[in-house]
Write a protein that binds this DNA or RNA. Structure first.
Lengths: 122, 122
DNA sequence: CAATATTTCTACACGTTGTAGAACTTCAAG
DNA sequence: CTTGAAGTTCTACAACGTGTAGAAATATTG
């Protein structure tokens, strides 16, 4: 699972916020409105299409080829994706428990409470 | 915090296994012995030095410039490093708790037990 | 000092990402 | 059907990171 570039990331963020599939043109408009794009020339649609293709190849995005302006949607939710990334990072460690210990030591108290709840029963 | 390439990773793995600072030449030898290097020409020591410099720039490695063949050591333990990476991934999520929920749902029962212990008191 | 070991510089190939024009395809209006 | 607009795919290139290492500079040691 490769890591995302800035634009790919921005596109994914938009797709994650949009439950319904969305067109490349809409995405371009949304991208133009985002903070980091102020005072920059709006992206060409082809640019957006290129990153969408790449994201599709990475299996992060799915497209409806049926509807004419193709519509794109994220394959997984951001939470799922992020959790997968975390597991991927953790997975490569031979000392998983030590990692978890460090990790736990850093989350906020509120989150620790959430974790306790999630782990609750046993 | 950038992500590591294969060789950078291999070097870090060796440094993490070696508590004492170690020279580039030793590292080259160790690298030649590792599984993925069988039937490959051994790396040039300059190659190892290059990646060590890059790792130093990334603040993952520290070198003793005092001793003549410089000696290198990892700045943090692998567990620390991995935990930091996990936090970095998690940090970029606006829905941290949802991510944690997914995450918890995937760790093994043994690890869940460890987590409970770590979160133990409340 | 001269030979040798070590380190730093410089270089290049290859893959990824941002970026977009050119060329091709499809669809709707006439 | 034809044609033009809208949409999609191809092709390209620059910038950057990484693997790789020779050349050049520097330090050690005999």
């Amino acid at each position: 699972m490769a890591t995302l570039g800035d634009l790919e990331r921005a596109v994914m963020d938009l797709l994650w916020e949009h439950p319904e599939a969305i067109t490349a043109n809409s995405l371009r408009d949304l991208l133009s409105g985002r903070p980091s794009a102020t005072d920059t020339r709006p992206l060409a649609v082809t640019t957006v299409l290129t990153v969408l293709s790449r994201l599709e190849k990475k299996a992060l995005v799915e497209r409806e080829r049926s509807s004419r302006p193709h519509r794109y949607r994220a394959v997984t939710s951001r939470a799922e994706h992020t959790a997968e990334l975390m597991l991927e990072v953790l997975g490569s460690a031979p000392d998983r428990e030590a990692v978890l210990a460090r990790f736990i030591g850093t989350v906020s108290e509120g989150e620790a409470a959430t974790l306790r709840k999630l782990l609750g029963h046993d």
